[in-house]
Amino acid sequence: MTHDPILFVGGSGIVGRQAARYLRDAHPEAPLLIGGRDLGRASAVAAELRNAEGVAVDLSAPDLGLGDRPVSALALFFKDDAIACLRFAQARGIPYLSISSGVHEIGPEVAAYMHAPNASAVVLGAEWLVGATTVPAMLAAREFSTIDSVRISAIIDDEDVGGAATDADMERLTRTMPAALTVEDGDYLWRTGDGAQTSVIALDGTRMPADVFSPYDVLVLANETRARDVEFRLAVGESSSRRRGEPLSTEIIVDLSGTDLAGQPLQVRQAVVHPGGQMPLTGLGVAMVMERLAGLQNQAVGVGLYFPFQLVDPETYQRRLEAIGGSILPLQG
């Protein structure tokens, strides 16, 4: 089957390159366009991938500077304040994924979708590391009949360099996020100031200072599990593996509490880890979502508004995670 190329806008950055490589490994024949403001840099990345081409992207142009070049789906790796890429995707009727907007920045993309709901599939991709929390959590949730609380503790090593776009996203989100969204006793609440200060326990048992944070995972997990308490905590510092004298890692500890299928109390704790840090997990999530959007894996996605976890099969995700060196570790309650 012949496919039009998949466009990665910002594909020459660290996350974009990672996602493109994972997509290439899974689908060697899928054509890719690596888009960026620097054509030379985009072309250099494309040359590493096979069946890929670098293109210059102009966000000020309605056609992004691509003319009538065909595109099957678009992934965006940085914050597009003018939502130019989304408007391009809607005009072309192609699926769109962005991974940078915070929960408090959701308005422009949602409004654009609401004004053209039949134009294309729109994926709000800023779940933590594009599904690395939500997909494994929902797999673990199958053991429960009811879930009362969900607590996520994410740890980024302070030496885990994410590239210019990722660093800009984190700086913007920590500066502009007015408060942190949580669910407490069934109510959606925003925590500020000292109320947003907390701590996490890393895999090696070290307690680390943390902030309450609110990626889309809070919305996803609250709606999917119907838990009355949902909280996401983020710590940045030395990871457990580096404290052991090993290379840095990323850690996402998922703690679910409720009742099992027989109605008995149940707590499940697990950790999603990768020795390469946050970028491989983000790249894998983007690659798997784009496979669905472009119709490379299973049936193509219809028009609608989605989160990544809705498009990713949990068992397949776990296999692909293990194939790239990551793992899901069971922990004691």
Rank of each mutant, 00 (worst) to 15 (best):
F8H: 06
I94P: 00
H115L: 15
A75T: 01
V55C: 04
Q18P: 03
S327M: 14
Q18D: 13
T174G: 12
H104L: 09
E315A: 15
G195D: 14
A196T: 00
T259P: 03
R142M: 04
A73V: 05
M114K: 13
V303D: 13
G11T: 06
R191G: 02
M290G: 05
V110C: 07
Q332P: 00
D313P: 01
H27E: 09
S241M: 14
R142V: 01
G10M: 08
D58H: 06
V15Y: 00
L293Q: 01
V135N: 10
G237Q: 04
L76M: 12
I99S: 09
R233G: 01
I155S: 11
T259V: 12
D148K: 10
R21K: 12
V9R: 03
V55L: 04
G263M: 08
L189A: 15
D58R: 09
P265E: 05
S60G: 10
P28K: 08
A75E: 01
S145W: 04
R21Q: 15
V135E: 02
D167W: 06
E171M: 14
I324H: 10
A73T: 02
V135M: 08
A121H: 02
I201D: 06
A46W: 03
Y216M: 13
Y96S: 07
L331F: 10
G102M: 08
T250D: 06
G13A: 09
M288N: 05
V45T: 13
G162R: 10
A26C: 04
C85P: 13
V289I: 08
W190P: 05
E251I: 09
S145K: 08
V286A: 00
N223Y: 07
D160K: 11
R142I: 00
G304F: 00
R269W: 06
A227C: 11
I94R: 00
L97T: 03
R243N: 09
L64D: 00
A30G: 02
P330K: 00
A84N: 06
G13C: 11
R244S: 13
L32G: 01
R228I: 07
V161W: 10
D157P: 13
A56C: 11
T133M: 11
V218G: 10
V57C: 07
Y96C: 04
L129Y: 06
R242V: 05
M290D: 11
V230L: 03
D81E: 11
T176H: 13
E159A: 15
L39K: 13
H27P: 03
A141M: 08
G131I: 02
L59K: 05
T133C: 12
D158K: 10
M1G: 15
G11D: 02
G186H: 03
V286H: 01
R17E: 12
I156K: 15
Q197G: 04
G13D: 03
L76S: 11
L329P: 03
L203G: 15
Q297Y: 12
T176D: 15
W190C: 11
D211L: 13
D194T: 10
H115W: 05
A179M: 04
V103P: 01
G304P: 00
R226C: 07
G283D: 07
R292H: 00
F309T: 14
V135F: 04
R41M: 06
S98E: 15
V122S: 00
A91C: 04
N118E: 15
R269K: 13
G11P: 03
G102L: 09
S199G: 02
R69F: 03
G325T: 05
L32K: 07
G245V: 00
R243V: 07
L321Y: 15
